[in-house]
Amino acid sequence: MVSVPSVKLNSGKSIPVIGLGVWETAQDVAGTIVSKALDVGYRHVDSAACYYNEQEVCEGIASWLKKNPSAKREEIFYTTKIWDPEHGYEKTKKAIEESLEKAKSIDYIDLILVHSPQSDDERRHGTWIALQEAVDSGKVKSIGVSNYGVKHLKELLAYPDLKYRPTINQIELHPWLARPDLVEFCQKERIEIEAYSPLAHGQRVNDPKLDYFAKKYNKTNAQILIAWSLARGFIVLPKTATESRLLPNLQSIDVKLDDEDVKTLNSWDEHLVTGWDPLDYPLDSEKKA
């Protein structure tokens, strides 16, 4: 079984540096793939309300813990997210309650993220207040954001009632989408970066330029891409619902890229967005301009 190290968040909680993403993982297979992932060494699973598999993912974790009584709930890190239509204080409070109900089999949620900034200034603020209250309740351990640009983070960090800083910003990252300015800002503010779609949705996984590195390190192209995120200091979320890919993705932890190779991969940046890109979503002041 592969052992994955963790990093400490600004909340004081620790998060494994490789997690299993379950976007588009069907409800009828989510629990099984999560259990299989835990078997091979994953201790971090990333879901969201709009993935419609929160309950199945949590039940997969609970089932695995029951089958492995020596393992502890505290060893597993579970993330979910608040979808944009649920922004605003009251709506977010209800959404948190619904996510906690779906997670009752594992007792609490390790991390809740604001899924994107796509609402408005007032509702984003209300959402953060509700998330802070959830942390105070003890049922949510850490809070953060996803798909936030620098301007959205600056807005959040300037809230007059800010009690808990965002622990994480989860964004699409890979060598063709390096986002250097945003990465630098997050690192300066002690906000950990989580890289989703580290394989660029498969669009460049067969790029011949990757073959050189795969041969040099005797690894697959996918493992090189995951290793790049790790070398950059990111937490990385390779998504798969295919059991045979679980272990190889996790074994990327053993790939130690040379500094020069990391620089070469960095140089491929062309701002290739392969999913969605709400990082430039306008603030209210920009909408009125």
Rank of each mutant, 00 (worst) to 15 (best):
Y217C: 02
R232L: 14
T167F: 00
R73H: 07
L65K: 05
I106L: 13
F77D: 03
K91I: 01
P180T: 13
Q203L: 13
Q132G: 10
S99Y: 01
V205H: 03
E286T: 14
R190A: 09
L173R: 08
S63R: 08
G149Y: 12
I61W: 01
Q170F: 05
A200S: 14
P117K: 10
L131R: 03
K72N: 14
V140C: 04
H44N: 14
E56V: 08
Y108D: 07
G149E: 04
V150S: 03
V273S: 09
A26M: 12
N218W: 01
L100C: 09
K94R: 15
T127H: 01
I109R: 06
V150K: 15
E98P: 00
P160L: 08
I109M: 11
K104E: 14
Y217M: 04
R179V: 10
V34R: 00
S252D: 10
E243Q: 10
V135R: 03
I171Y: 00
K263G: 00
A95C: 14
G149D: 10
N266T: 13
V145D: 02
A95G: 10
Q27Y: 13
A37W: 01
I224H: 00
K104Q: 12
K151M: 05
L225F: 06
D284N: 14
Q203M: 07
H87D: 02
L283P: 09
K93F: 06
C50L: 13
I168R: 00
E260S: 09
I112R: 05
N221S: 14
R190V: 06
Q118N: 07
R232H: 13
L131W: 02
S3F: 11
I226D: 01
V255F: 08
P69E: 07
L247Y: 09
I82R: 00
H44K: 04
V22P: 00
S6Y: 11
T264F: 14
P278N: 10
R43G: 01
D207T: 04
A71S: 14
A48E: 06
K81Y: 03
A222L: 01
R190W: 05
T242L: 07
S11H: 12
Y78S: 04
K91Y: 08
D39H: 11
L265S: 06
S3K: 12
T80I: 06
T32H: 12
T264Q: 14
S197E: 06
E189Q: 15
I76R: 00
A178T: 15
H115Q: 13
E189F: 02
V34K: 08
A195Q: 02
D120G: 13
P278C: 11
A227F: 03
T32E: 14
L65Y: 10
P175K: 11
K13S: 07
A71V: 05
Q118M: 15
L111G: 06
V7H: 01
P198I: 06
Q251N: 12
V29F: 02
V150I: 15
A130E: 10
N221M: 09
L237M: 09
N53E: 10
G88S: 10
E56W: 04
E101P: 00
L131N: 01
E98V: 12
K36Q: 13
E172S: 09
D107E: 15
H271Y: 12
K81A: 01
L157V: 04
I106E: 12
V57N: 02
